[in-house]
Computed example of a mutant assay.
Amino acid sequence: MSVRNALLGLLSQRPRHGYELLQAFETMAGGREVWEVKPAQVYTTLARLKENGLIVEVPSGDENGNERQMYALTPAGRDELKSWFEQPVRSERQRDEFFIKLMLAVATGYVDPREVIYAQRSSLYQELHDLTERRMTLDPRRDLAHILLLDQAIMHIEADLRWMDMIEARLDEVARQPLPEPEMRPRGRPPGKRAG
């Protein structure tokens, strides 16, 4: 998910200032430990949204009379948000750093691929334990949305663990197969055609 669209969504509720947007995003995402966004990223994104005509600045004084710069959606921002809601979210599950690491371990022989699997599995079990503990501390009457987010993360880890069992069972078979090699193409300009 882009922070850009999340900010548009938060601004659709009401005008907000930058720091409030940062806090609202982190709270909705499940906390800073789940999805940390730097203040500079929020303000840079707000500047781009304003430049693209999706938000406008609206001055607002606080209870002490201090002016705070607030941001509000424009009609174009509402259209952009609606378009984002209508589009499905593409999974990035095929971009997996562990898979690349494992395939390189198989290809190079630099380390035993099983050690790579064991290290990853151990890390996943620890993450599963931590998420399950966090989930148990939440009150379903107050924190149901956060519980559902943690349930998704737990299910993904459980699926990754089952997938690792499959890989480990077939690792020797993978090692016997040639790894994919790119097709080499000639570099430079193609030879020119002579006029005849």
Rank of each mutant, 00 (worst) to 15 (best):
147 I>N: 07
145 A>N: 11
152 Q>F: 13
145 A>L: 12
141 R>M: 14
153 A>M: 08
149 L>Q: 14
151 D>V: 08
152 Q>A: 10
147 I>C: 11
149 L>C: 03
163 W>L: 09
148 L>I: 14
146 H>T: 14
149 L>E: 09
138 L>P: 05
146 H>R: 15
144 L>V: 10
157 I>D: 00
153 A>F: 03
152 Q>V: 07
141 R>L: 15
158 E>L: 08
165 D>T: 04
154 I>Y: 03
156 H>N: 04
155 M>C: 02
155 M>A: 10
164 M>K: 00
138 L>R: 11
148 L>R: 15
165 D>H: 03
148 L>S: 13
150 L>C: 08
157 I>G: 01
150 L>Y: 12
163 W>P: 00
160 D>H: 03
150 L>R: 11
167 I>D: 04
143 D>W: 08
151 D>Y: 10
162 R>C: 02
163 W>A: 08
151 D>M: 09
156 H>W: 00
143 D>Y: 06
156 H>T: 02
153 A>N: 04
158 E>I: 02
153 A>D: 05
144 L>Y: 14
144 L>F: 13
141 R>F: 14
167 I>F: 07
156 H>M: 04
141 R>W: 12
144 L>M: 15
163 W>E: 06
150 L>E: 08
148 L>E: 15
162 R>G: 02
162 R>K: 07
155 M>G: 04
142 R>P: 01
146 H>E: 15
140 P>I: 12
146 H>N: 09
151 D>Q: 13
139 D>P: 05
158 E>A: 05
138 L>N: 07
146 H>V: 11
158 E>G: 03
138 L>Q: 09
141 R>A: 15
155 M>D: 08
152 Q>K: 13
137 T>I: 07
167 I>R: 04
155 M>H: 06
145 A>Q: 12
166 M>D: 04
141 R>H: 14
138 L>H: 09
149 L>M: 12
146 H>G: 06
157 I>S: 01
150 L>H: 09
162 R>T: 03
139 D>I: 05
144 L>T: 12
154 I>K: 01
